[in-house]
Amino acid sequence: MEKGLIAIAAALAVMTGMVTGIGEASVARQAVESIGKNPDAADKIRSMAILGAAISETCAIYGMLVAFLIIFVLGA
């Protein structure tokens, strides 16, 4: 019973990934759009897009950290 609740809690924690996926997709969409409009700036746009995607990914990583903590600290 308790193990099941811990598993549900960990699953809820990694659900941060849902919204992060949408966010990162919008970063990629905007990057592709702006490269289409202005192909000369492709280099700058690429590095900015990677940076933006990486920083917005932090949110999902924190969710994963919490899930790991729940599994290994509470579930052990």
Partner: peptide
């Protein structure tokens, strides 16, 4: 936060 996010991204 910089330290955590850099290390956890690769690890995760």
């Amino acid at each position: 936060g910089t330290l955590l996010s850099l290390s956890l991204r690769l690890f995760g």
